[in-house]
Write a protein that binds this DNA or RNA. Structure first.
Lengths: 108, 108
DNA sequence: GTACAAGTACGACGGTCACCGTACTACGAC
DNA sequence: GTCGTAGTACGGTGACCGTCGTACTTGTAC
């Protein structure tokens, strides 16, 4: 249909639209926190979101990734049938300096 | 009845029992975050928990304060009919350095 | 073209949670 | 003692959320 295959980033809040309550709530779920921790080990460019194992089904994974994306924690771009996810470190560190490091450094 | 009027701290997790998911989930609620922000302005000894205004009823306030306490974010001790609440800065800073400052420094 | 793989959309279900009102306890003032 | 105040306990209700299965779309490989 559309002449353009979606290759831009999926919709996400701009830096000044990120709300701390949403970020904290997004990180407060065990599955999502697990995902963010694994994603944090990836290179800056991010990694294919499907390669990080999660103890849930595909559709639940989609739900959690959308929650993280809409909260402003991660960004995603389409690459073929894959989605490349990456942690929005710059934005989070700029808005809440220390928060991400505090979370990622927490004992597992 | 009991010869001892309860004046000890109300039950709360020890430092090593604090779980990051619970802390984040506790802080992810707007009402609780509002409370923590106000409490952070109080002196180190804490302040009477009832003097911080919240847009909810008494019983809902109790619910939120228990959530914060059980997550390890605040501690409470009884003093007469009052409850003195204080932020567990030392524990949180030790466990998750930077997290609390990042949250408290966030734009409102 | 077909077939497969990655991901999304949608609907459903069950559990948790934020919220309230009411009843109750405990302490202080009188 | 009575009364008022601070807070908790309990039960109920409605909404949200995490979970799943199924159907669908899209891109790649054949």
């Amino acid at each position: 249909m559309s002449p353009v295959t979606q290759q831009a980033e999926l919709p996400q809040p701009a830096r000044d639209e990120i709300r701390i309550e949403q970020v904290l709530a997004a990180l407060g779920d065990p599955v999502r926190l697990l995902y963010v921790r694994e994603l944090a080990k990836a290179p800056t460019e991010g990694m294919a979101c499907g390669v990080i194992p999660l103890p849930v089904t595909k559709s639940t994974r989609t739900h959690h990734l959308r929650t993280l994306r809409e909260a402003g924690v991660i960004s995603m771009r389409a690459e073929g049938t894959r989605r490349i996810a990456c942690l929005r470190r710059d934005d989070l560190d700029a808005l809440y300096p220390g928060l991400l490091d505090g979370v990622l450094g927490a004992p597992h």
